[in-house]
Amino acid sequence: MKILPQLIFLLFHTLFIGIAVYESQEQLSQLIPLTLITSLLLYFYLHNFSKSKAPAEKDIQISTIIFAILGGITTFFLQDRLELTAVLSAGTIGLFGGILPKIINKPLARIASLAIYCGAFVGMTPPVLAGNYLFIILASFSAGTILILARKSFNGYAGKLGSIAFAGVSLVSLLSYVLL
């Protein structure tokens, strides 16, 4: 159970870069740098697996999921209804979430800030791909759950929230592909 979050990160990172390497098979100029970066990524995982432990915020689990869903829905709404670009939508919602801990000095505000930004990445999925709000709610729920699982892993590492959002979106995409 302790290494589950790290396994999730390893799985989705290798899946991501694996698809990129596979798709670049015929273009040597892309294949060489991608292979080099993949090797360095695997070297990092080999030498750091189960070492990455950091103090976590006080557990407020349901709130994390609720804030992730809020971040996802509002970002998707800005894209879908107000026709803002994905970058501007997520940036605006992220900024709103980021300001919260500066105004309210409570652990909940810090958790909200991270969960809202994580959800915002889920909400960047274009309406054409997501289809409806249910997809965003389920993907944000999955991302919020993984965020809780990974609360003691990779704190302070770049791309943690985005990787969690990617895992959430991928899981729900796979689920909808299998079920529908």
């Binding site: 970066i37 990092f44 990445f121 997501a130 943690k160 979106v169 991928s170």
Partner: peptide, 30 residues
């Protein structure tokens, strides 16, 4: 480099930019 090579594969997929950033960062640490 990763964005240039993978940009088209994951267009619009939520979290793909963050995943790219994480892979780049972890590879640098490696």
């Amino acid at each position: 480099i990763l964005f240039y090579c993978t940009g088209v594969f994951f267009v619009g997929f939520g979290g793909s930019l963050g995943t790219t950033a994480a892979i780049a960062f972890f590879a640098s640490l490696g």
